[in-house]
């Protein structure tokens, strides 16, 4: 199932999520994270998107997964944050 969300990060930038997920087991099949935020290094976005495939659409699980990827790849967000990213992804379910 494909769903989209648009979420303005408080004090940050505009986040747009395009999510493809399995609505039976609520796992991510694929997602595209777009917007006018900054991520350092930029190429880390592709790593993040890949690592989130097969993740269950649950706030706590997403938060832990994203924090892990950030730590492992020394990623820095500007105008975006983990809470906002999780909110944007979960909004696709509504």
């Amino acid at each position: 199932m494909i769903s989209k969300s648009v979420y303005k990060i408080p004090d940050g930038k505009l986040l747009k999520i395009s999510l493809d997920y399995n609505d039976k087991n609520e796992k991510i099949l694929g997602l595209l994270i777009t917007g006018d935020f900054f991520i350092y290094p930029e190429e880390a976005i592709e790593i993040l998107e890949k690592k989130l495939v097969n993740t269950t659409l649950n706030e706590k699980i997403l938060m832990d997964k994203i924090n892990n990827v950030i730590r492992e790849n020394k990623i820095e967000f500007i105008g975006l944050n983990v809470e906002g990213l999780v909110t944007g992804i979960m909004m696709c379910l509504k």
Binding site: K16, S18, L32, I33, T34, G35, D36, F37, I39, E42, I45
Partner: peptide, 9 residues
Amino acid sequence: IGYFQSLSE
């Protein structure tokens, strides 16, 4: 456009 933006959107 910014690196993270969707061109067609």
